[in-house]
Write a protein that binds this DNA or RNA. Structure first.
Lengths: 224, 224
DNA sequence: GTCTATATTTAGATAGAC
DNA sequence: GTCTATCTAAATATAGAC
């Protein structure tokens, strides 16, 4: 194999090694719980190089956080905006692929939601968060499909929370789940695999639940 | 009003003030993100008094963590072990009262689940966690009710995750939800109020979803 | 670009007066 | 019990040689 061919697969640069290590450690321990020494050690480089390449812990974190949020939300964006699939197909694609994605990055949910709570400022401006969800093509389809059933937007909002929650929450509660039910990693994995098909089934049946509008405040003035 | 009568309602002691402040700050910022100075300031006492009363930040945290876990799980324990109500009644009581509880302490879920992930060791021994859930009376009732429908324990486990998740997840995602959907605190509150009745309805309908066992691995060897 | 050594800053903890 | 002042340790950041 020639040297030229190896360029594309050559060893990562020091800068890349640091970024990868930072991603790993920040995701696991959060901003406050991470020491720059941990990152340097994980990357196998000298501590001083962190500041040489990224100026400060905070700047490095901001970079990682930005990329992580992109990853987390953009991976969702593509799945819910496919205009060539039916609602049922899209829901199935979404749960399958997003659960696969989360399985490959199981600490993402708690990292992101925790850091957002610590520092919510300038969240949605940084990326078009509102547009990602509210403008999603799948929402249009939901509304068409449900228009017949007289289901208000406030219930649709509740269902969005449920769909996301049923995929994301198990990862947030994973350490607790594993202890309470003595689950192995394999069992957790197969539980999430089952969810790929269960979530769409559940969602469909939940929409059939007999809702009496008089029982609910229906969150005034919600429109998606 | 006599001085004797005022004893029971007198100002909190310094020790109590510190503990309350510690609870508040730890819940908000987590262990790593909290500085002892924050706690002292919140309590309005001198920094040195923290160590006078509690020896160290870590000891103070352990104390708060212990009490918080008790609060979080014990408040659940009573609700799912009432032997005098039907399954439907108990589910309704559970969702109503547990959501009320979470509304009164909205940072609890993310605090607890985050700290558990950071340091899962000795979790379930510290309190009889397995017994709280697995030994719950409501589980017996679920099994009886579902015995007729041939629903395996692995699906019951999935449903437990759903029940807890539908109550807890909105609080974990609250900052994000509020930004994406422009929710006010009042709207979030009324959303959670609606959930008190929606969750039991949803759960019931989800149990009616048509499940084909061939589609699922059904998590081998799970028994609750 | 990388390293050693060191400076700076921050946070937890304590000594000792009152 | 409480406070001031201070110590110590830890963590971030930088200077300067190579």
């Amino acid at each position: 194999m020639s040297k030229k061919m190896e360029i594309s697969e050559k060893d990562p640069t020091t800068e890349e090694k640091i970024k990868e290590a930072a991603r790993k450690v920040f995701h696991k321990k959060g901003y406050a719980g991470t020491r720059t020494r941990d990152i340097a050690e994980e990357a196998g480089v000298n501590l001083a190089l962190l500041n040489y390449y990224f100026r400060s812990k905070e700047k490095l974190f901001d970079l990682i956080m930005e990329e992580t949020m992109q990853l987390f939300f953009q991976s969702m964006k593509g799945l819910i905006n496919n205009e060539r699939t039916t609602l049922q197909e899209k829901l199935q694609d979404f749960t399958t692929q997003y659960i696969d994605f989360l399985c490959s990055q199981p600490e993402l949910p708690i990292f992101i939601l925790n850091e957002i709570q610590m520092n919510p400022k300038g969240l949605s401006e940084r990326m078009g968060l509102q547009q990602v969800v509210i403008g999603a093509y799948i929402l249009k389809q939901f509304r068409e499909d449900l228009g017949n059933k007289d289901i208000p937007d406030s219930v649709l909002l509740q269902m969005i929370v449920n769909i996301i929650g049923m995929m994301v929450f198990p990862f947030i509660g994973k350490p607790l789940l594993k202890e309470i039910f003595n689950l192995s990693d394999e069992q957790f994995q197969s539980m999430m695999n089952d969810r790929k098909k269960l979530v769409p089934l559940w969602i469909e049946s939940m929409f059939s639940a007999p809702i009496n509008p008089k029982d609910f405040s229906m969150i005034q003035n919600i429109k998606l």
